[in-house]
Design a protein around this nucleic acid. Structure first.
Length: 193
DNA sequence: TGGTAATCTAATCAAGG
DNA sequence: CCTTGATTAGATTACCA
């Protein structure tokens, strides 16, 4: 992207849950590794998160389920996880605008994977059975498209609408409590209309 | 206007306890 | 066997030339 990669194109999810995007995903080759992985079959290595890491991740997730790049980096640093922010293929070759037939989907940092799984599990667990509740009303698709996961008036840790991401303020060098920073940022964002 | 880049969700696989 | 991390595919949105 030759257009200021640091501009952080405000990754605003905006409309989440298009309504069933992504088919059954049944179109997947049975091959465990269709790519010629050099060095044999790339074995999946589960990343065993430490209690501390999990704790931080959980806290961060509770504060901001949709952390921005900056937050992710901080999180990665804090959790001591490899921040694979650099788009590099499995072989270490930079994914250029023509080197990758697919697109992104590069190596995401463990923390990102964790967040993805967490969100997925959260959403699925939040809606065990889709009640036949008709749409509230054709009141435009305002940004208030609160995810179905909401409805948690209790512990709801300020689930920031997919649009109020933490702007990643000038985080101090004290990474001791990123969760606090994130939380504060989230709260601040929510507090400001 | 079209193309590209980045992110997200959903489904599924597979390792680890 | 169950939990949960890792992978893949598809779709959407936003920005730039």
């Amino acid at each position: 992207m030759s257009a200021a990669p640091g501009t952080s194109r405000a990754p605003q999810p905006l409309l989440r849950f298009p309504g069933g995007a992504g088919g059954p995903g049944g179109s997947r080759p049975p091959g465990p590794c269709p790519c010629p992985c050099p060095g044999g079959p790339r074995k999946r290595r589960r990343t065993t998160f430490s209690r501390g890491q999990l704790s931080e991740l959980e806290r961060a997730f509770a504060a901001v389920p949709y952390p921005d790049i900056a937050t992710r980096e901080r999180l990665a640093e804090l959790t001591q996880l490899p921040e694979a922010k650099i788009q590099v293929s499995a072989d270490g070759t930079p994914l250029g605008p023509g080197a990758a037939p697919s697109v992104s989907h590069g190596p995401v940092s463990p923390s990102q994977v964790w967040f993805q799984n967490r969100r997925a599990r959260r959403i699925r667990s939040a809606k065990p059975e889709p009640p036949p509740q008709p749409p509230p009303a054709p009141t435009e698709r305002g940004p208030s498209t609160a995810p179905p996961d909401g409805t948690a008036p209790g512990p709801a840790p300020a689930v920031p609408p997919p649009g109020a991401r933490s702007p990643a303020p000038s985080l101090p060098t004290s990474l001791g409590s990123i969760s606090d920073l994130i939380y504060s940022a989230a709260i601040t964002n929510l507090g400001e209309p």
